[in-house]
Amino acid sequence: METAIKYFYMLLKTLKGRHYLLLFLVPVLFLFLWIKAFISPVSLTPGQDQMPLYELLQQLTGGSIIALNIVGAAILILLSLLAVRLNERYVFIRQRTDLPAFVFALIATGTVSLYGMHPALLASFLLFFAIDCVFAVYHGSRTLAKSFEAGMFIGLATVTYLFSGIYLLWFWVALAFLGYFRPREILAGFVGFLLPVFVVLSWYFLNDNLTGLLQTISSLYNFEFSAEYSMFQKVYWGILAAFVLIASAFMANVVEEKKISSRKYFMILFVFFLTAIGNYFIFSSAGTELYFLLLIPTTFIVSHYFVLSRYSWVKEILFILFVVASILVHFLG
Rank of each mutant, 00 (worst) to 15 (best):
A136C: 11
V197I: 15
L201E: 07
L29Y: 01
M231A: 13
V84H: 05
S43P: 07
L178M: 08
T275H: 02
L210I: 11
A241M: 15
P297F: 02
M1T: 05
L76Y: 00
P100I: 03
Q215G: 02
V235C: 11
P27S: 07
L121K: 12
F102G: 00
F322G: 00
K264H: 07
L328A: 15
L81S: 00
T298D: 07
D208C: 01
F331H: 05
L78K: 13
V159H: 04
T216G: 03
E149Q: 13
M152L: 14
L210E: 01
I268H: 09
A120D: 06
R263W: 02
A242R: 12
F177M: 13
K6N: 03
R85L: 08
L269D: 10
F243K: 04
F128S: 03
V235N: 09
V134N: 08
V42W: 10
L295E: 09
L56T: 11
E224I: 12
V159F: 04
I154Q: 08
H118G: 08
F322M: 07
L220I: 04
Y229E: 15
A74Y: 10
S226Q: 13
S80R: 02
F223E: 15
I296G: 07
G47A: 14
L99A: 08
V91T: 12
M267I: 12
V255Q: 07
V235D: 14
V28Y: 00
V271P: 01
L122S: 09
S248E: 01
P27F: 11
F205P: 00
P119W: 06
S218G: 09
F232N: 04
L187Q: 01
F30T: 00
L206P: 04
V197K: 04
L187A: 09
S40P: 01
M10T: 06
Y229P: 05
L220A: 11
W170D: 06
V254L: 03
F319Q: 01
N87V: 00
Y291L: 08
L187W: 06
V42P: 05
K36W: 10
S202I: 07
I70M: 13
L126E: 05
I317V: 15
F8N: 10
Q58W: 12
I327P: 03
L122K: 06
T61C: 12
T211Y: 14
I296Y: 01
A247Y: 00
I327L: 15
F198V: 11
K264Q: 12
F24Q: 02
W203F: 12
M251G: 03
I268L: 13
L31H: 05
A188Q: 04
L78S: 15
I260V: 09
K13R: 14
K36T: 06
S64A: 13
L44C: 07
F223V: 05
Y20N: 08
T158N: 06
E256W: 12
V323Q: 02
I277T: 08
M267E: 12
L56S: 11
T111N: 09
Q59K: 14
L240I: 13
S248N: 14
F306R: 10
A247T: 10
I260D: 14
